[in-house]
Each structure stands twice: as structure tokens, then as C-alpha cells.
């Protein structure tokens, strides 16, 4: 009976390890389905009070605490689409010198995360010892690194800005997921954050 019970305990252990491998619920997501559009706004602001906006003609690239600018084809596509949408919503694009009411900036942010994962040997007994002899393999460690690049759009209030102080952010948007830098779908991707921000109009 004792032998049978040890076999049983071993079987239970194997079953636990087998069930511990959870399925990946996201593996069947299409490229479009991975895309997430997040928008935030300052609720005390009435966007009809602004007349003009300025937009830099380059995209900021923020990566590992370093900032640069980029002027690739896709960046121009994105900037053009933002300009035309803002114009449709009743705002006039002006240069920085013409004292715009809103300052719009567009950035690509690349975030890298490094993690450590321990790979425990599945043949180790769950209770540390089985009748067959106590054996133990130490875990091996591996590093993993994930990085994600996403669009970040920001609108600041220059109309009511105080000299020497950071202007207040009145709207921002994050576009995250796969395929968000593809030229073919870029227009649609940019449009989505404006579609869910219908208050953003003159």
C-alpha cells in the first residue's frame, strides 16, 4: 500500500505541474485586435475656447531616457493626419511664433523591460523527497527582455500658460499594440484616438 501511495503522490505532482502550464489566451489575436487606444483629457477644460494650435514637424523618439527626433515617411504620415484632423475639428495651425493656444507633440516611446525568470526542474519532487532517493536539481536562470514602442500624443495649454512654468497637459493619447507603425494602417490608427475624443473640437 505504501508503494501505491508514493506512486499516487508522484502522479498528483505530475498533474499539478501539467496544469500549472496555463494556456496563452492572446495567441489568436489578430494584429488589429492587439491595438489599444487610450485617451485622457482634463475635464475642467472647454476645448471650444481654443482657436489655434502648433505642431512640430518632427516626431520625438524617446528611448532609454534619450530623446531624439525622427522624420521618416511614417512620421510625416502621422503628423499630416493629425494636422488635417485638428483642422477639420475647427482649429487653425499656426507657427510657434504666432502664439498658438494649443501645443501638440507627437512621440514614439520605446520602453524596454528586463526580467529574470527561474526555471525549476520539473523532476524535483514536490515535497523535496521521494522514497526513491532525495534528488534535487537547482534551478537555472534566464533573462528575458521585452520592448514595446508606442505612439504618444500630447496637447498642452499654451493659452493659459504661465511664464517659466510647465504648461498644463489638457489631452493625451497612447496608441499601443502591433502594426501601429505600418504605413497602410497608420491613418486609421491615428483617427481612432480622435474618434473617441469628440469633445476635442471648436
Amino acid at each position: 500500500m505504501k508503494v501505491k501511495f508514493q506512486a499516487l503522490i508522484l502522479g498528483v505532482t505530475v498533474a499539478m505541474i501539467a496544469t500549472a502550464c496555463a494556456p496563452d489566451p492572446l495567441k489568436d489575436l489578430t494584429v488589429e485586435e492587439t491595438q489599444v487606444f487610450i485617451t485622457n483629457y482634463e475635464p475642467t477644460v472647454n476645448f471650444a475656447n481654443y482657436q489655434t494650435f502648433s505642431l512640430a514637424d518632427t516626431v520625438y523618439v524617446i528611448q532609454n531616457q534619450q530623446t531624439g527626433v525622427s522624420t521618416s515617411t511614417q512620421d510625416y504620415l502621422a503628423l499630416d493626419r493629425i494636422t488635417s484632423t485638428m483642422t477639420q475639428r475647427g482649429y487653425k495651425r499656426v507657427t510657434r511664433e504666432a502664439k498658438p493656444d494649443l501645443g501638440v507633440s507627437v512621440a514614439r516611446i520605446r520602453e524596454t523591460q528586463t526580467g529574470l525568470v527561474a526555471n525549476y526542474n520539473p523532476w524535483n519532487s514536490y515535497w523535496g523527497y521521494t522514497g526513491g532517493g532525495g534528488f534535487y536539481y537547482p534551478p537555472t536562470y534566464s533573462y528575458y527582455q521585452t520592448s514595446e514602442t508606442y505612439w504618444y500624443l500630447e496637447m498642452v495649454d499654451l493659452k493659459n500658460a504661465t511664464n517659466g512654468l510647465q504648461p498644463k497637459v489638457v489631452w493625451n493619447a497612447q496608441i499601443r499594440g502591433n502594426g501601429i507603425f505600418d504605413a497602410a494602417s497608420l491613418t486609421n490608427v491615428i483617427d481612432n484616438v480622435f474618434k473617441q475624443s469628440m469633445y476635442l473640437k471648436k
Binding site: 489566451p25 489575436l29 489599444v36 487610450i38 485617451t39 483629457y41 482634463e42 473617441q196
Partner: peptide, 21 residues
């Protein structure tokens, strides 16, 4: 679906999972 909250919105395809052992 667009999920509205106090001062913003999130448009996303949600995958909800519940696991219990």
C-alpha cells in the same frame, strides 16, 4: 469597444480569463 471612464477612454479588444487551481 470604447470603454469610457471619468476623464478618458480606452478602445480595445478585451480578453478576460479566470484561472483557479
Amino acid at each position: 469597444q470604447v470603454y469610457e471612464y471619468d476623464n478618458g477612454a480606452i478602445s480595445a479588444v478585451q480578453t478576460r480569463t479566470v484561472t483557479a487551481y
